[in-house]
Every structure is written in structure tokens, then in C-alpha cells.
């Protein structure tokens, strides 16, 4: 503002209008600013403080330094929860992503007609209230009469106990994750539609088959979309709560004790608010690191492409 005093009058009115606009603008955004301070910034700050305290809701928080963090890494269940969550991120997220991409590339095949009803079907599971989805999947995964094992039985395989088996409970959750990937499919399809058909035509002339076209054209050009979907999925896995809470309560023998479920238990079953806050902060940091690394990896690929 100070520098612009040369063209005196015009600048004056200009800046007054601008100042008016700025004031109005801030007024419009005011609800967000208040909400951000009260419902986001203040809680983040106090969460950090609580994480350094022994706090059981009743009574005042007692400052104990980094003890919560130290204790967490000695906590057997916490380590188990980290491992389970890592399993879902390292196996569940890639499997789900690959399935979603494969399905959308197939759906996007222009020569294939009559697929619009399939899009609707793939999307519908995302509309189901999570709790109902969980109730359903308890049945789908039922050892004796569940849908999955019934089908496995038809082809002569005796299916595992799924949710009651320490080995198969997590794969069961991955199947459920795939079942709700309809959002991602919609986003991938939108991304695929942005790719110029000329590229495929050229590849066709060069004799590239459908699979080659998918790997060399579709997937590289979908990269930003894949990044977005994977980041969303990973954050989702960190926050995964309702499914294990309702379907397994973390069992059998902590095989489905995921990060957020344990956090919830610490906070609202054992009322260890400080301990749970420390967990939340570790989660925030780890999630941020993963996201940053993923952005780097995907960006690196971009420059490589030229």
C-alpha cells in the first residue's frame, strides 16, 4: 500500500474500493475463520498439549513430558495396531487401487456396450451406511453359510473362518475395501475420459493391444488421479474405525486391531486422553510423511516423462 502513493487520487479511490472488497470478502469467509479457530486450530493445539500430559478427563491434565510417546513404543498392542495398519497400507491399498484401475479401464473400453448399469452397481456399495455394510459383511464372511465360502464350496475349496481367523481377517477387510471402491472408479473414469482418443488410435495403428495401451497410455496419464485416490485411501486406512469396531472389535487376538480403533479404545474406553492424543499425533506425522513421499515419487515420474 505504501508504495502506491504516486497516482494519488485514482489510486486512493482504487484502494478504497479494494479495501471495501477485502472487508466484504473477509466477512463472507468469517464463518470458516471462526470454525477453523474453534473446531480445528484450538483442538490441534490442545491435542499436542494433552499428548504430553497424563489426562483422564476428571481432574486437570498433568504434564509428563514425552512419557506417553515412550510408553506407546513399549505397548505391545500399539505395535500390533501399527503392524496391522501397515499391512493394510502396503497390501490393501495397492490391491484396491489396482482393482479399481483395472475395472475402470475395462469399463472405459469404447467398443464395449451396455456397461452403464455396471457403473451404477459398482457405485452403489459406497451409498450404504457403513454400519449396514458391516452387518452385511459379517454375513458375507460367515464361515459356514456366508456367500464367499458358499461360492468357494461350489468350486471345491473349503473357505477359511475369515473374520474369526487371525490370518484371514485382514484379507476379509481388504475384500470389503474393494467392495467400496466405487468412488475411486468414478474418479478414474473421469480421468480416463480426459485422455485424448488420438493417443489410443495411434497406438492401435502401431499394433499395441488393449493391455499394452492400458499400461503405456492410460496408467501413466492417470498418475495424478492415482495419487489422489491412493492418498485418500491411505488416510482412510489410518482412520479406519467403524468396520473393525462393529465386525471384530479388534479380534481375533488383535489381528484387526487397527490404529484408530486402538486410539478410540484408549480415549473412550480407558479414558487415557493424553495417551490417545499422543497416538493421534504420531498418526498425523506418519500420515504427512507418507503423503509427502508419495507426492515426491509421483512428481518424480512426471518430470521423467518430460
Amino acid at each position: 500500500m505504501e508504495k502506491k502513493k504516486k497516482g494519488f487520487l485514482s489510486e486512493y479511490t482504487g484502494s478504497r474500493m479494494r479495501r471495501n472488497e477485502a472487508r466484504t470478502g473477509l466477512l463472507f469467509v468469517l464463518p470458516w475463520i471462526i470454525g477453523f479457530l474453534v473446531f480445528t486450530l484450538y483442538p490441534i493445539g490442545s491435542s499436542l498439549y494433552y499428548s504430553l500430559c497424563n489426562y483422564k478427563v476428571v481432574g486437570a491434565p498433568k504434564f509428563i513430558g514425552l512419557d506417553n510417546y515412550r510408553n506407546l513404543f513399549k505397548d505391545r498392542i500399539f505395535i500390533q495396531a501399527c503392524k496391522n495398519t501397515a499391512y493394510m497400507i502396503l497390501i490393501g491399498v495397492p490391491v484396491t487401487t489396482l482393482t479399481a484401475i483395472a475395472m475402470s479401464i475395462m469399463l472405459n473400453n469404447k467398443k464395449l456396450r451396455g456397461t452403464s448399469w455396471m457403473r451404477v452397481i459398482f457405485f452403489i456399495p459406497t451409498l450404504v451406511p457403513t454400519v449396514v455394510g458391516c452387518l452385511l459383511w459379517i454375513w458375507v464372511m460367515q464361515p459356514e453359510s456366508g456367500l464367499v465360502n458358499t461360492f468357494l464350496g461350489y468350486i471345491g475349496i473349503k473357505g477359511p473362518g475369515w473374520l474369526s481367523s487371525p490370518t484371514w481377517a485382514k484379507p476379509a477387510f481388504i475384500l470389503m475395501m474393494i467392495w467400496t471402491c466405487g468412488n475411486a472408479i468414478i474418479i478414474y473414469l473421469a480421468g480416463l475420459q480426459d485422455i485424448s482418443p488420438a493417443l489410443y488410435d495411434a497406438a492401435e495403428v502401431d499394433g499395441a493391444n488393449f493391455l499394452q495401451q492400458s499400461i503405456h497410455i492410460s496408467v501413466p496419464l492417470l498418475r495424478p488421479t492415482i495419487l489422489y485416490n491412493m492418498v485418500t485411501l491411505i488416510i482412510g486406512v489410518f482412520q479406519w474405525f467403524t468396520e473393525p469396531y462393529i465386525m471384530t472389535e479388534g479380534g481375533p487376538s488383535n489381528a484387526t486391531m487397527f490404529y484408530s480403533l486402538y486410539l478410540y479404545q484408549n480415549a473412550f474406553s480407558f479414558f487415557k486422553m493424553g495417551y490417545a492424543s499422543a497416538q493421534a499425533w504420531i498418526m498425523l506425522l506418519v500420515a504427512m510423511i507418507i503423503i509427502i513421499v508419495m507426492f515426491k515419487v509421483f512428481r518424480f515420474g512426471e518430470t521423467e516423462m518430460g
Partner: peptide, 22 residues
């Protein structure tokens, strides 16, 4: 900042909000 809050896990704010609401 608005965009950044989208990836903020709700667990980070849940406990303080619970205490605040209590």
C-alpha cells in the same frame, strides 16, 4: 489452509473437541 485441513485426520481434533464439549 482450507485444502490442507481436508487431509487432517479427525482423530487429532476428536479428543480435544470431546473435552471441550464436555
Amino acid at each position: 489452509i482450507v485444502i490442507a485441513t481436508m487431509i487432517l485426520p479427525y482423530q487429532v481434533t476428536l479428543i480435544p473437541l470431546y473435552i471441550m464439549y464436555t
